[in-house]
Structures are given as C-alpha cells and as structure tokens.
C-alpha cells in the first residue's frame, strides 16, 4: 500500500502556511479533504484521484456550444459550471446579433479560460490559439488522468502521435481531440482509453507502445 495515499480527514502537517489544494485547516493543523496522493513540494497539496473538473484561469479546454445568445455563447466545459464566450473573444471581429453565423449549438471549440470568479462564472477566450473543431474525433477521459495521457515531458502523447500519425490535442478538462486517418484515429482513441483504464500501472508507455504495434500488425 502506498504511504502517500490519503483519505479525507488525514492529518498532513502542523504548519498552516503549507496548506495547498485538496486540504483544509482546522485547529492550526492541515488535513486532507479529498482522496488522493500527497505532494509535499513547496506547499502540501493532495492531487485528487477522482472528482469533477474545476475550471482554473489559464486552462486550455475543449468546449461544446450549448446556447447561442445575442452577444455571447454558452459553453459546456465538462464541469459543473457553464462557461461564457463573449463575441469580443472570438478570433474574428463580429457584430452583436451575428453569433449564430459563426458558432452553432453542438459545435466544439478549443478555448482558454481567462477568469473564474467567486460565483463560478467562467469566461473563455478564443483569441490566443483558440479555434473551432470541425473534423476528427473527440474522446473524453477523467481529467485526473490527463497528466498520465501526456506523460513526462510529453513522452506518452508524442509516442501516440508518432505511431498513428494523428494530430492529438489534449485539454485540461479531460477531452481529447484526435484528427487523422480514420483507422489511425480509432487506434489512438483505443490507446488513450487504455491509458485511462491502466493509469496506475508501471511502465505504461511501454505497454502502450506494444499495444499500438500489435494492433498495427493485426491490421496488416
């Protein structure tokens, strides 16, 4: 059993200045508030192993348009809270009232979170690097597994990209966009879903390499 696994209520430290994410303070002591792995860096934080995506300023997310309004869009970002994309944050200049000519309900976009306020109103922008997704395939995995899908220094995602020749875009909210040849997209999607299933195992990069090579051989 891992020593660093915590459950809610576990005592982490007696120094309240160290309290980070996934912790709370009571009686001058720091306790864990969620199930997760303790990271004792500059601050003590608990990296959650479960839970919903909570938007954070600076995150790049894949969103789905769920409402078109006069001068903004309402976007689902795979979180308990909806986000808002104002027309001024659209890459092109558009006039109020013309929103429906640019993005319709159900369309997917890549956007960046610019701000989250205390009432959890989330604002998005498509101005730096954002775009609409009009081809390829989208899969969804738990956002807690995203670091695993990327791998150390991007090793995992680069492996899948090279092996399948697909464009893969991994967003912070657990959605992954894959674009490329149809059968290779399927293979990449299978590999990513396998990563989600086996996120806790050792030597995952090798497992995935083997998985892709075997799948390719079978297809020939």
């Amino acid at each position: 059993m891992s020593k660093d696994l915590t459950i809610p209520g576990d005592l982490l430290s007696g120094d309240v200045r160290l309290a980070g994410e996934g912790t709370y303070i009571e009686d001058e002591k720091v306790y864990a508030s969620v199930c997760g792995v303790v990271d004792r860096g500059e601050k003590i934080r608990v990296v959650p192993l479960t839970g919903k995506y909570m938007p954070c300023s600076g995150d790049v997310v894949v969103g789905k348009i769920i409402d078109v309004r006069f001068s903004s869009w309402t976007v689902d970002i795979n979180s308990p809270y909806e986000a808002r994309l104002h027309i001024s944050e659209y890459p092109k200049r558009i006039n109020p009232g013309e929103t429906n000519q640019h993005l319709g309900i159900g369309e997917l976009i890549i956007a960046k979170v610019t701000g989250v306020d205390a009432a959890m109103r989330v604002d998005l922008t498509m101005r730096d690097g954002g775009k609409a997704i009009r081809s390829g395939r989208l899969i969804e995995i738990s956002h807690t597994k995203i670091p695993r899908a990327i791998g150390r220094g991007g090793s995992m995602i680069n492996l899948i990209k090279n092996e399948t020749n697909c464009d893969i875009f991994v967003s912070q909210n657990g959605r992954i966009w894959i674009n490329g040849r149809e059968d290779m997209v399927t293979l990449a999607a299978d590999a990513l879903l396998k990563i989600e299933q086996e996120a806790h195992t050792f030597g995952l990069t090798d497992t995935i390499r083997e998985f892709i090579e075997n799948a390719k051989r079978d297809r020939k």
Binding site: P8, G9, E26, S33, V34, C35, P48, T50, G51
Partner: peptide, 11 residues
C-alpha cells in the same frame, strides 16, 4: 462522497 471526490472534513 469520497469516491465522487467531494471535499470533506473527514469520513
């Protein structure tokens, strides 16, 4: 609740 990742002060 813990499985859903809801922050709690304890079980």
């Amino acid at each position: 609740l813990a499985d859903a990742g809801i922050p709690m002060r304890g079980l």
